[in-house]
Design a protein around this nucleic acid. Sequence first.
DNA 1: GAGGACATTTTTGTATACAATACTGCCGAC
DNA 2: GTCGGCAGTATTGTATACAAAAATGTCCTC
Lengths: 228, 228
Amino acid sequence: MNELRSSPATAESVAADLERAIHEHRLPPGTKLGEDELGEVYGISRTTVRAALQSLAHHRLVELRRNRGAFVAQPTVREAREVFEARALLEPRTARSACQRMDADKLQTLQDHIDAEHAAIDAGDAGRAVYLSGQFHIEIARMADQATIEAIISELVARSSLIIALYWQRRAALCESHAHHALIDAFAAGKDDLAEDLMKSHLLDLVTSLDLRNRTSIPGSLREALSQ
Amino acid sequence: MNELRSSPATAESVAADLERAIHEHRLPPGTKLGEDELGEVYGISRTTVRAALQSLAHHRLVELRRNRGAFVAQPTVREAREVFEARALLEPRTARSACQRMDADKLQTLQDHIDAEHAAIDAGDAGRAVYLSGQFHIEIARMADQATIEAIISELVARSSLIIALYWQRRAALCESHAHHALIDAFAAGKDDLAEDLMKSHLLDLVTSLDLRNRTSIPGSLREALSQ
DNA sequence: GAGGACATTTTTGTATACAATACTGCCGAC
DNA sequence: GTCGGCAGTATTGTATACAAAAATGTCCTC
């Protein structure tokens, strides 16, 4: 995406670029992220690449194996459950707070998000739709005016994106935006109790839409290659 | 602490060492962490030091200012409130889960923690007492068998340690261990509702024991120097 | 022909050298 | 006397070079 930017890429910009690529499933779980390769792509040295990879590793988006290199993380079934457990503790109450601080501008921002989501779905860009769907949750946390919780949710949303890439069973791609619509309605009506409940059940729906049976899709990329 | 270890220090060990030093308030908020200086102390190059500092920066324990260097973080009053807001969302429910999975071994582990805490207090080592007090909370999260939530709480506890260093008003140093005792009792009795409530009020007590008035102790070290 | 050991190659881990940026002290002008 | 600019110094940011580890491919032995 940024191969030919004028100023040299920084560790932060590379990390952001990679994070987005992972988010949008252009870099699927298990992908090897070679340092030389990335350095060549972005026109920077391995030093800077390593800084970016370390940053992503701290967010659990890439796994760093000693003397082996960096790989796009492959959350286990257990991790998947845990991430949504954590989100279930944080997001409903955060949605309530956001509802209490809602105003016309914020409502419009959320509406724009949903519109962009729909546009991505219509364009057949599922990866981008997932990304935007996650951003919707982060935006709500931001509106709750809790920067710390927002940062935590951002991380969990990013990991959720990986989880969706691994465990999503394509049944109804549109159920999500319906839930998001309902949330906006609750926000607009100022019904904070409802917003909290909607978020709670929305997250529950998300988990149940995943295929988290204890099959062996956990470990390395070899299993995936064998199953093809 | 590790100046004369046989094998060379790794980025991880340096990060752990620094984290502990920050935890125990041996490195107070605002302390400059020069790369050359640290490299000399641990007998490693700046490359490794930088990796450790970046790791700590991701956990918000140190602040990285571009072309300025690394400093032990100085959470603002706002951040302090936010950190405890997040803990209030996560820890009570986690204490409940831990209670439901409690057994004799785990109870003993928690009791040992408290004993160590008391020993540190008796020895006048307040820094270590704060560290152990934090570990108590992390241990509970671990017992809830939620690695993801445990990691989040670990980060919040570490930041809480900085907040305590900055905003703690020394009144009753022993109120904490009393709350921890009460929690153990609830665990032993298997009263998960009580455990959840106790954790909730314990966190509330912690916040109220801080001096979070909007005084100007926020920004750089200059303000602190002026007030002395 | 199969298995294991060794050498090769590739890739990461670490240190060092250079460049860029910000800070400190000095000097001159107003 | 104070303010503004300028040079020197120190520290971080980045790149490159070297060392170590792991993976792979080849060859020899059984």
